[in-house]
Every structure is written in structure tokens, then in C-alpha cells.
Design a protein around this nucleic acid. Structure first.
Lengths: 334, 334
DNA sequence: TCTATTTAGGTAACCGTTTTCCCTGTTTTT
DNA sequence: AAAAACAGGGAAAACGGTTACCTAAATAGA
């Protein structure tokens, strides 16, 4: 069997209390005793049982990441894994472990409640895809240390952080104006799609600031997929006055848009510039390679990790904010 | 404070042993006592402390998934998250939790050693991206319950499961032959790339079986990216005798290949058919949509989870096998 | 009816740490 | 020189369960 603290104490000729004190520092122990204990630990190849330690200290040193395997255009969200890695990175720095739980929105409440009641965890990082009003109430009532990744689309008590999509929209618009484009169109997802709408808001606020007027038909809403992107691009291009740049709310829409321009033999970026959001693989592959507003999602995970650790220490901390900032990656399409 | 087993025992007028027995079933307890205990638990809103339980039982009910955030064509591996979700699914069915650890190959050894020594875990699922000869020795010496996802490319003691890429290659070739294509070309990654080479092996074995002769120039190796796919396609197409179908070792190569065919105004699938592997987003988006040999990676995670649980129960179990099977998704390119 | 077996439930040790007290002896202060 | 402060370290309770062992009563078998 592996050595325990008792074995070490016996070998060193001390009590277990002393051994514990040596390990945890900040007690007054003579150098001689420290040496004896250290040597005993060495000889026995002793490693303290972390489970026992956490149990004794009544802490778990664990955070749970609750998420659902979001399918986006039939493909699992490529951001999820990177967010998680960022989270893990921040937590492990402070000796915390990250447990992952993939679960549906309906079952999330029960799971979280149980995990808290059975003392499995110090706090939760919850992806917006699994939140609900019911969960909000639960977390509020039990005052569970938590952080939601993503902006809830209902009023809630949640603490959350999110990508600043409005800022992303602003960046896109500013970039185009700086490049000399003068009349911008926006083709987006549904009007209920918060991400798409925030990006649009950002675009419009910049245009407004620069006194650029946006004709109604230059803003289109549809599905967040390729075909819809194609269709919306056609709508925009069939006007008597064509725009000279198009902002696409996401990569899939952008792909459709580029196809449409291609079919109409319109040159990118000379006749029309194209910008989109998120640096998914095919933004680099497409001809022309797309100029993109990217998000460092790993960093978002890191931020989330730092926050939840703070929250665990000071439970009355409160945050709701756009904390992760988009950056511009200029490629060939502008 | 939350209620403990002692509180329940006191309230029910029994001993803690009895309460424990009621909770864990399979002991002889009278119905009357069971009712008393259950009621006490109810009234106190008692939930057993899982940490204490695991500690007492000397088990952790935890598996760690060790991985490194693999970048593939500069983009994090889209499979990783789904594998992990599959894993989590299988583990949670048996009451196990999944801890994720993102770490570099160099640091993986130390991490795993420490996690074992400090009794944090019952077993490991390790992604092939973090294994090394050193790790092999460590795991062998300490006989740590483990399972590697992916085939190690050196001889080792590891237990592993992997996708059957040879079978995938066979499926691709068979499909093309069935569709009436007669001379197949293969454009792949580097010759050191095991995945690409396995797929090629599968292709060749089927062609051999059907007595189809493959000219040397019909098999090309290059990088696993778009540009290389374009270049290799050109090489294959500039022969005097053109093939009538091309198998691309992955999605990126396929994209380059399709571009090349497009530029040469060769019709897909009429003049030339195209097949590739893995159902990444743009296989559905590309015109024409690509016929693809897909892998259910979620299921691979599930298999891995089931296996590691078995291995934890019976430590002398041993497995090295191709356990996850590819399936054909027919789209427009064949 | 008497013994053997089963059933029901309690006692207390145990899992491996931490931590609170407390004691002893030495040093410092007055 | 007496009192106070302090450094060093041990004893034992605590964390919240499980479980081996034991006893008494109930039941079964003869």
C-alpha cells in the first residue's frame, strides 16, 4: 500500500500533526524536524491523498463546466472546446480541477441542484445553451457560485460574461469605411438571433456616427446558413443602387454571399468588399480569403476561469458584462 | 448547515449504520425502519456528501481525459469536443465524473503521475496527441488504468482504440466502383501521416481485390491543406490518361481538389467523382456537396468510456483495436 | 421443545488528512 | 528574579460517511 501521513510520522518520530504542519508551511517548526520529516517523506515516496485533504478541509477544489453539445449548422460548436481549454488553464493554475458535464437544458437544473447538495463542487461555469428561467431561480435561491458564458436573452440574476458582438460590428464597419467603402449592406440571421442583431447594432451605430444613411433594403435577415446567405446577397445586389461592401453575420452566410458574388461575376474586393465574423476554417480557405472579426475564445475561457475563482472566494461579487474583445484579421476580401 | 447522516440517525432514532444501510439497499432492514429513515431524510432535506462517501469507500468515481488542444490547419480539432461528450455520456451513466486536462505532451507524464499518486482518479483516457515513450513506461510500470484514443505510432504497451481508417478507405473505393467509376486516384497527406496512409491502404486493397491497376502517378502525397490539394489534383489531371474519380485524404485537400476541377471546368460528378473523409462543415456547403466517409466520434467517446470503466473493474483487461467504424454519406460529388 | 439459522439493527473502527487546544521549555521583558 | 511571551510539537477531535463484527430476537427445522 502507499504510505500515509501516519507512516511518515512514525518514520520521522513525530506526530501526524507535525507532518501536516511541515507540508503546509507557515507553522513554527524547527529546521531539524523539517529535515527529518522531509527525509521520511522522501524515503517512503509519500504523496498526500488529495481526496482526504479536500475532505478534511471541506473544499472540493473543483469547478463544473455545464454545457450542451450545441449543434450549429449541424456541426458541433467549434468554440466550445477552446473555451473549455481556456477555463481549464485558468483553473489549474490555482489547483482547481475542471469537470465537464454535457446535458440538455431540461435536465441541467436537476443536475446542478444535485451536484451542489452532494457537495461535489465549489462552483459552476454554465454555457448559455443550457440556461433557463428555472435555473435562474434555482441558482439565485441557493446562491450558487456560478458564471454564465453568453448573454441570457431574458432578464435574470445570472452573472455572465459574453463576447462584445456590438463592438465586433463596430470594428467591421469602421474597417470598411477606412478602406474607402461607402455604402454598406448587412446580411444576418433571424431577428431573434441576439448575436446577429448585436453585430448589426454595432454596424449601424458606426454608420450613424459617420452620417452614412443605410437604405432599408441593405439590411436583410434570414437563416444562419449558406443558402440563405446566397439568397440575401442576391436581394441586396438586385437593387438599382448596389452597395459596395457586405457584412455577413457569420461564416456560413458569408460563404453563400461569396458564391452569389461569384456567380454574378462581381469582383471581390474591387467591386464589393466582404467582411464576416469568427475565424472558422474556411475563412482561410475561401477564394478570396475572408477578412474577419475574430474572437479569442480561449481567452474568454481564461477570463471565465479567473472570475469563477474570485466568485468562490467572495460570493457576493457580481458581474454582467461584455468582457471579451474581438479583433480584426484583414485578408483578401476587403 | 446542511444535514449529515448523524442528524438523520438522531431524528429517525436509529444508528448511522442503519441510515447508511437504508441508503445503500441490499441489507436486511424492516420496512418500518426504512420508512422512519426515509421520512427523516425527507424532513431534513438530507443529501449524502458524495466526497465523504467516495473517501470512505476509497474510490474516486472519476476519470480524467488528458488531451492537448490539437491545432489542425491552424484550427482546433473539431472532433475533440464530441469525443469528450461521448466519453462523458458513458461515464455519467455509471455515476462517474469526467475531469478534463489540457496539457502538452512534455508535461503530461508528470501530471498523470501526480494525479495517480495523490489518488485523484480511477483511470485515464488519453488522446494520442499527448502520448510518448516515457508515458508508456510510466503507465506500464505503475499499471495505471488507461485507454489511448488513437493508434500510437510506436510500439508500446498502451491499450488503445482508434478509428478504422483502412476500412474507411475501403468504403470509399467500393462506393466509387459501385457507382461505375473505373480508374481511381488518391491524393493524400505526407507519407508519415498514418491516417492518410491507412486510408490509402484501404483503397488499394479494394482495388487490388477487383484487379484494378493503379498507375503510380495516380497516388500523390503532399501537405494536408488546401493548396497542396489543388497542386496534387493538377498533377493527377495533367496525365495523358485521366482518372475518373479522386479520393482525397481529408476535407482540406478535397476543397483544393474541387477548386482545381472547377478551374479546369471539369464536371463533378459526371466527368470525375470526388470522395473524402470526415464530415466537416464545408463538405455540406461546397458545390457540389461532397460524398464523404464519416466517423461517429461521439460514439467513439462512448466506446472509450465503456472500456475504461471495464478496465477500472478488471485491471488486467487488454485491448488494442480499431473499434469505431466509418459510414458512407452519399452526396452530390459521386 | 430445543437448537440452528436468519433477520434486524447497533457499536465502533476506519478512511487520511487538518486543526484546535494544550503542554513544555526557552527566551524576553520588567 | 519573577512574569510574560513565544517557539516547538503532541493528543485528539473533526470531516461524513462505510462496514466488520456483534447481539438479541424471531423463525425454522428436527
Amino acid at each position: 500500500m502507499t504510505a500515509t501521513i501516519k507512516d511518515v510520522a512514525k518514520k520521522a518520530g513525530t506526530s501526524t500533526a507535525t507532518v501536516s504542519k511541515v507540508m503546509n508551511g507557515s507553522y513554527s517548526i524547527s529546521q531539524a524536524t523539517i529535515d527529518k520529516v522531509m527525509q521520511a517523506m522522501e524515503e517512503l515516496n509519500y504523496h498526500p491523498n488529495l481526496r482526504a485533504k479536500n475532505f478534511a478541509k471541506q473544499s472540493t477544489k473543483t469547478v463544473i463546466f455545464v454545457t450542451s453539445i450545441g449543434k450549429e449548422a449541424g456541426f458541433s460548436n467549434p468554440h466550445m472546446f477552446e473555451i473549455m481549454c481556456g477555463l481549464e488553464h485558468a483553473l489549474s493554475e490555482k489547483g482547481y480541477a475542471l469537470i465537464v458535464k454535457n446535458i440538455s437544458e431540461e435536465k441541467a437544473c436537476e443536475y446542478i441542484k444535485n451536484a451542489v447538495e452532494t457537495k461535489q463542487v465549489d462552483g459552476f461555469v454554465i454555457h448559455a445553451s443550457v440556461i433557463s428561467v428555472k435555473l435562474d431561480e434555482l441558482i439565485f435561491q441557493m446562491s450558487i457560485p456560478h458564471l454564465v458564458i453568453g448573454n441570457p436573452n431574458f432578464s435574470s440574476h445570472f452573472c455572465w460574461i459574453d463576447i462584445d458582438n456590438k463592438l465586433a460590428g463596430e470594428l467591421a464597419a469602421k474597417h470598411l469605411l477606412e478602406k474607402g467603402y461607402q455604402s454598406l449592406a448587412f446580411i444576418g440571421g433571424r431577428e431573434e438571433d441576439k448575436i446577429s442583431m448585436h453585430r448589426l447594432q454595432g454596424v449601424l451605430s458606426v454608420l450613424n456616427e459617420h452620417d452614412v444613411i443605410v437604405p432599408k433594403n441593405y439590411v436583410q435577415h434570414g437563416e444562419s446558413d449558406c443558402d440563405s446567405g446566397y439568397a440575401m446577397a442576391e436581394l441586396v445586389l438586385n437593387q438599382s443602387e448596389k452597395p459596395d461592401a457586405i457584412i455577413c453575420a457569420n461564416n456560413y452566410i458569408a460563404y453563400g454571399c461569396v458564391s452569389a458574388l461569384h456567380d454574378k461575376e462581381i469582383q471581390i474586393p474591387n467591386e464589393i468588399g466582404v467582411v464576416t465574423f469568427d475565424d472558422y476554417p474556411f475563412s482561410k480557405i475561401l477564394k478570396p480569403m475572408l477578412t474577419v472579426i475574430d474572437i479569442d475564445v480561449f481567452d474568454m475561457g481564461v477570463q471565465a476561469g479567473k472570475y469563477i475563482l474570485q466568485k468562490i472566494r467572495k460570493p457576493n461579487l457580481y458581474v454582467q458584462s461584455y468582457i471579451t474583445f474581438p479583433t480584426l484579421i484583414i485578408r483578401e476580401s476587403t
